[in-house]
Design a protein around this nucleic acid. Structure first.
Lengths: 201, 201
DNA sequence: TTTTATTGATTGATGAGTCAATCAAAAATA
DNA sequence: TATTTTTGATTGACTCATCAATCAATAAAA
């Protein structure tokens, strides 16, 4: 069995497994055994490569964040105008995989963990800041600086809120409806803030 | 010591203690010992009255929900017009105590638990439904049925989103700013939806 | 042979839940 | 009223299960 150069392979497998198990169980209180079993290795090996459960968890969040960032970068590059970039950001936030119940459950678990772990908190703050600054950059050419701040804040809140509401799975909103709600929000506020006048229909 | 009629007193003390400990530690993974100590009794007594940790947790969420409902009822009674009731609902959601870090941490923990426990999920769904239907009732006299649904959905999401964003404690938004953002949202949409025409300033 | 990969077995800590025993108020009885 | 019985309140001590972390041993490359 022991082939050389297994470390990166195993690390990735364990991180992916961790995300899956956390998503399935909806908590960070999963056992190293669960994760290792899902990754197809022994619990001891997980400790060997990550040192501790905490480290593995941190690596898992990092990986989720990195993926999100890459998605955003790709989406932003494809968009040309500020307004298009704005829509791209909204769409990325509601990507199908992000909307999967397991992904939402995992995010929720991370948010909860952030109340205890400074490391986790710091990582999530990075996500929040990035979303905010991305939105802001797209909004600034479209409105006053003040309005841009407000709209970015509101849009970010709405995105996170639609997200968390999915987690209860009662009257789940579709991806399209979520996008539409957020788009409506920015549209309405860009219109209102636009030179203090309301365009006629 | 043993006076008669201690049961309701102890139950309340334990539920209150549970909420405090959960809020402080930001997780439901608190020990019965922690809770019991905070309530000033032995862990065995907590089991005696609640049977299991789960039961105590359920009772705790129930208590939080009941308090929230009472607040909403009181606020709604004080408001006369639909528009006033709408603002009252928004204000209640951002009440100072609801905005306290420990309360937010507790809510987050409950949401996370809802991924695992059907009982907890059911309770949180009740909260979500209530907020939605309260918003809807206030919105219906103010717009078309379709718009009312949309705005209620959006406002609820924004409220929850502003809430969860507080939990990261980076760039915390003030209560007033949160209320203002939500009010702006409903204002903008009530305006736009109002007979398909945009009023001039 | 040295290094890397891998695991089974073990340990130590923690925490939920149980239980038998104690204590004191209240109710019943003398 | 005084004494006994009953019952609710309460806990210390214990059990049992779980889990993170460790380690010594094995196997296969290099």
């Amino acid at each position: 069995m022991p082939k050389i150069g297994m470390e990166p392979v195993r690390r990735k497998a364990l991180v992916d497994a961790a995300l899956r198990v956390i998503g399935d169980q909806g908590t960070l209180s999963v056992t190293m055994s669960d994760i290792a079993r899902t990754a197809g290795v022994s619990p001891a090996l997980a400790h060997h490569y990550f040192g501790s459960k905490d480290q593995l968890l941190i690596a898992t969040i990092r990986s989720l964040l990195a993926q999100l960032r890459d998605d955003a970068v790709a989406a932003l590059q494809a968009a040309k105008t500020p307004r298009e970039r704005l829509s791209a950001l909204i769409r990325v936030s509601f990507r199908a995989e992000q909307f999967a119940p397991e992904t939402i459950a995992a995010w929720l678990a991370f948010y909860s963990e952030a109340q205890r772990s400074e490391d986790v908190r710091r990582l999530l703050v990075i996500y929040a800041r990035r979303l905010r600054s991305n939105l802001l950059a797209s909004l600034r050419p479209l409105s006053t600086a003040d309005d841009a701040e407000r709209i970015a804040e509101g849009a970010a809140a709405m995105i996170d809120g639609l997200y968390i509401r999915q987690s209860l799975k009662s009257a789940p909103i579709s991806i399209e409806a979520s996008i539409a709600l957020t788009e409506d929000y920015v549209n309405a506020h860009l219109r209102v803030g636009d030179g203090e006048s309301y365009p006629s229909p």
